[in-house]
């Protein structure tokens, strides 16, 4: 079946035949490898995208069910070659180690700050609780978010 998905502002038409996830078509058919594929169980958050206005795990969205929806991936977070403030802050605070969790954290975190621009530290922790960093670099990630929200320095 043909599905049309608006990805980062552009309508893309795909032929979906089986049970593949949105994650799979983003990476394999649309060649957008920024969204990472790790656990495929919704546990790790590395495949987080904004799907019809909600940050979700793209591995848990059936591609066939995404017809008519709009999706923002990490490739769509920055605009006109300018990094998003979350990306700038993560660079400045050394919040990237192996980098595998980074796209998911950028998408989940930037989406969260749109609805809650001045969160407390526990709110940031809770907002990022679905994103696992196996380098365990949570301290630097938290400090990066605090500089975006004006709490840190």
């Amino acid at each position: 079946m043909n599905v049309t998905i608006n990805v980062n502002g552009e309508d893309r038409v795909l032929d979906v035949t089986g049970h593949e996830s949105l994650l799979s078509v983003l990476r394999n058919d649309l060649e957008l490898p920024g969204t990472k594929d790790a656990c495929e169980q919704g546990e790790c958050g590395s495949c987080t995208v904004v799907f019809d206005g909600e940050a979700v795990c793209s591995c848990l969205v059936m591609a066939a069910d995404a017809d008519g929806s709009s999706v923002t991936t990490v490739e769509g977070v920055s605009a006109d070659g300018e990094l998003h403030p979350v990306q700038e802050a993560m660079l400045a605070k050394g919040a990237v180690q192996c980098g595998f969790c980074t796209p998911g954290i950028v998408v989940a975190g930037s989406h969260f700050l749109e609805t809650n621009p001045h969160p407390s530290e526990p709110e940031i922790r809770e907002a990022l609780s679905g994103n696992i960093c196996r380098c365990t670099g949570y301290g630097a990630i938290l400090r990066a978010f605090e500089t975006v929200t004006g709490e840190g320095s």
Binding site: H19, S21, E40, Q41, G42, C59, L60, V61, M62, A64, D65
Partner: peptide, 26 residues
């Protein structure tokens, strides 16, 4: 039946389940 996908898609991704038909309620 498929709603949020948080149970069904895990089963599918881990290849425990390959349903021949899926009805989305979203």
């Amino acid at each position: 039946l498929l709603a949020g996908g948080t149970d069904l898609m895990v089963e599918i991704n881990l290849a425990h389940h390959r349903p021949s038909s899926v009805l989305s309620l979203r």
